[in-house]
């Protein structure tokens, strides 16, 4: 069964990634791996709703930022440990996703309308976080340094590596489960043809809401990680469009609706951006320009994403065609 192979492949891939802290001694190289995993988590979270559910969000920053601000504000204002904040952040992000989902799916918004509504919500949150005091407003919020694993702060990158590795693995396992569960089948049916799905007994609204909740939760976890990794947040970072764009670019470039697409997309976009930076220097906005170019090329020549290259080699990476059988 290809599906079992897919799980095996997933575990092997993560085991290989897990050797990074042992093999890589340079702090900056490990940093790159951490960022790739972080972007893969962002992308995979978007992939649940966008790739598997066909609901293209342009505002995943709303979930990401909520997770990030939750963990920061809870620590600073209420002294709540970030490990607990991790879950609260994820759940609050899920709450935001459910709210936005309810507001748009209830009224049957799809396609570009849904994209615009999500974008608007993220912007509203950005402006709100700029104007209220507990987020630190435009000045931002600084999480005080206390390098202790108990505070989800690590003395070196290895700790952060394992944190993001574990979060990423949890998200990827969830998406693997999507590929072999009734909920996943219904979600993909909704993506491919809402009316046909409805006629076959699929509760389209409930299915989209569940997907939004899952997607928002993992996006929120990525936000928590970001806050703990950089220890600084401001409204533009948390709720700005950069996160939203990164969230959707990664799976689109890697392969929407596939398990490994976001990982491939994250690795390729990130390495490309790093390489460019190496050769061209730190030109502002160059990474986005490169992403844009890559996106155009992928959409033109590989509409099913970079993963479709692997599909030809043996289908081991399991595009959605090979998801069962």
């Amino acid at each position: 069964m290809i599906n079992r192979n897919q799980l095996l492949t997933l575990l092997i891939v993560f085991a290989i990634i897990g050797t990074a802290p042992f093999l890589i001694t340079r702090e900056s190289t490990l940093n790159t791996v951490i960022l790739i995993l972080y972007v893969a988590l962002l992308g995979q979270a978007w992939n649940i709703l966008g790739g598997y559910g066909g609901q293209f969000s342009f505002g995943h920053a709303a979930f990401f930022g909520t997770g990030a601000y939750s963990v920061a504000v809870l620590q600073l204002q209420y002294g709540i440990n970030p490990w607990i904040g991790l879950f609260i952040g994820g759940l609050l992000a899920m709450g935001v996703a459910l709210f936005i989902g309810f507001a748009s799916f209830r009224y049957g918004l799809r396609g570009s309308y849904f994209a615009l509504v999500t974008l608007a919500f993220a912007e509203v949150l950005r402006i709100l976080s700029n104007s209220v005091s507990f987020t630190g407003g435009g000045v931002g919020i600084l999480i005080p340094l206390s390098r202790d694993p108990a505070n989800m702060q690590f003395a070196n990158n290895v700790g952060y590596f394992w944190l993001i590795w574990a979060l990423c693995l949890a998200c990827f396992l969830t998406v693997w489960w999507l590929g072999r569960s009734r909920f996943g089948a219904w979600l993909q049916a909704v993506r491919d043809n809402e009316d046909a799905a409805r006629a076959l007994g699929v509760d389209v609204f409930a299915t989209k809401m569940k997907a939004a909740a899952l997607s928002g939760f993992f996006s929120g976890l990525a936000g928590v990680f970001y806050a703990q990794f950089y220890l600084y947040l401001d409204p533009a970072i948390a709720y700005g469009s950069a996160v939203s764009i990164e969230s959707l670019l990664v799976p689109i470039i890697g392969g929407m609706g596939t398990l490994f697409g976001p990982l491939i997309g994250a690795a390729v976009t990130h390495l490309l951006a790093e390489t460019t930076r190496h050769f061209v220097g730190d030109v502002p906005g160059i990474a986005l320009a490169i992403y844009g170019l890559l996106l155009i090329l992928v959409v033109m020549f590989l509409p099913r994403g970079l993963i479709s290259i692997f599909g030809r080699i043996g289908g081991l990476f399991g595009s959605r065609r090979a998801a069962d059988a």
Binding site: Q188, A189, D192, N193, A197, L200, A325
Partner: peptide, 20 residues
């Protein structure tokens, strides 16, 4: 209204999931 991009088996399974 087929679920394009899904196989015939997957298409029919969407219906079967109502009871399974």
């Amino acid at each position: 209204q087929p679920f394009a991009g899904q196989t015939v088996r997957e298409n029919i399974a969407v219906g079967a999931h109502l009871r399974h």
